[in-house]
Design a protein around this nucleic acid. Sequence first.
DNA 1: TTGACATAGTGTTAATAAAACACTATTAAT
DNA 2: ATTAATAGTGTTTTATTAACACTATGTCAA
Lengths: 229, 229
Amino acid sequence: MPYSYPYPRPALAVDTVIFAFDGRMLKALLIERNNSPFKGYWALPGGFINMDEDLATAARRELAEETGVTGVFLEQLYTFGTPGRDPRGRTISVAYFALVRLAEVEAKAGDDAAAVHWFPVEELPKLAFDHGKVMPIALERLRSKMRYQPIAFGLLPLKFPLSQLQQLYETVLGITLDKRNFRKKVMALDILTPVKGQSTTGAHRPAQLYSFDSKKYERIKKRGLSFEL
Amino acid sequence: MPYSYPYPRPALAVDTVIFAFDGRMLKALLIERNNSPFKGYWALPGGFINMDEDLATAARRELAEETGVTGVFLEQLYTFGTPGRDPRGRTISVAYFALVRLAEVEAKAGDDAAAVHWFPVEELPKLAFDHGKVMPIALERLRSKMRYQPIAFGLLPLKFPLSQLQQLYETVLGITLDKRNFRKKVMALDILTPVKGQSTTGAHRPAQLYSFDSKKYERIKKRGLSFEL
DNA sequence: TTGACATAGTGTTAATAAAACACTATTAAT
DNA sequence: ATTAATAGTGTTTTATTAACACTATGTCAA
């Protein structure tokens, strides 16, 4: 294919902030770089895009390579292009953020990674490149989006007790919620289906398990009604 | 500078959705393309980035070239990179959206533009490339952001009557607002300063003019109080 | 087997915020 | 002096959100 723009071009990468929730803390997956620059530093999983590959496809490919998960929530976050952000030369990075269920993930160190590790988002190490700027933007996006879209379920097991949903909202938003008010609101949304089986962990009354019902949610959305927690 | 990524690279462009408000309608600035591909089509103003130039800087440069305005609200919107979106070859475009005061703009056709024109956002022509996908995203961003951040003032003259502010909200959000409730809310926010002089247009009672007071707004923000209209 | 412990589950009231609603005031034009 | 056109101003009703405490049910250990 002939190309009518013969000037020098920046390199183009995708980097993904991968969030998961372990029941107590929000965590992010980082890789330890095996190569220069920033060898030994922790960084967001990512890499250069292929010439015939959509941006989101590249992000999903990286995500599958690093964590083995597919079909998860993935959304474009922001594009970073400040000159000098990559010492190898001008590189633009399109950042994505992803929500995964911890139980479904098998994080594995790839070619470029000496190690992979889940860090609590409140205790991140110093990051390579400008990745330290990406994380707060990703967190802010997660927080604001959780309030009016049902994305939090991408962080929970397919079946979960309401207490876990509340714990997730409290942890991510950094607030405490009244149990009764929270349950009232959630149930009023009518987007959960009770499922057979109870959570039976610990010496106490077991809890009803629920699953997010995307059909119900779509019906609500079409009626113009809104999710809001 | 040595470069360690010797593979083919996409070209990188910025395109900007420029919004303005004429007192009745929200409008967007488009250029008529003078060159192939899409010669004769209307398109978003934009162009390829320079190798030593920040993304936002590139967007501001294009904005200044096309409209003569500087120092306006400009925000990154979304990055488009689907293979095939530019028939000349793989091109990634970082889209921005900008808010300008119509009175300060002198739109001028640049090198690549046969013409420049303000279109009402509800009556856009068929656009070049995938620019038809950009506009609804820009509109949605404007609408949602207007609700909780004081960006609307970037579309109004520095001095304006409250009726114009209300008209702007009604037009952009596609709703009608109660005059008394609207004024109560705006005044309660305490982010406007009345200025000397009245709007004296037409055979009717003149209106008090106000200006947005960013100092007041910053003080409010620091106190954790929120803008919401 | 019984009691202690830990989490699940459940309604009502008070406080706050949002929505509905109509008239008087002031200017320019005729 | 009258008309036309927009500016400006409070109160009541309704809806939403926040505050609040006890009973239920299971496991585990004595």
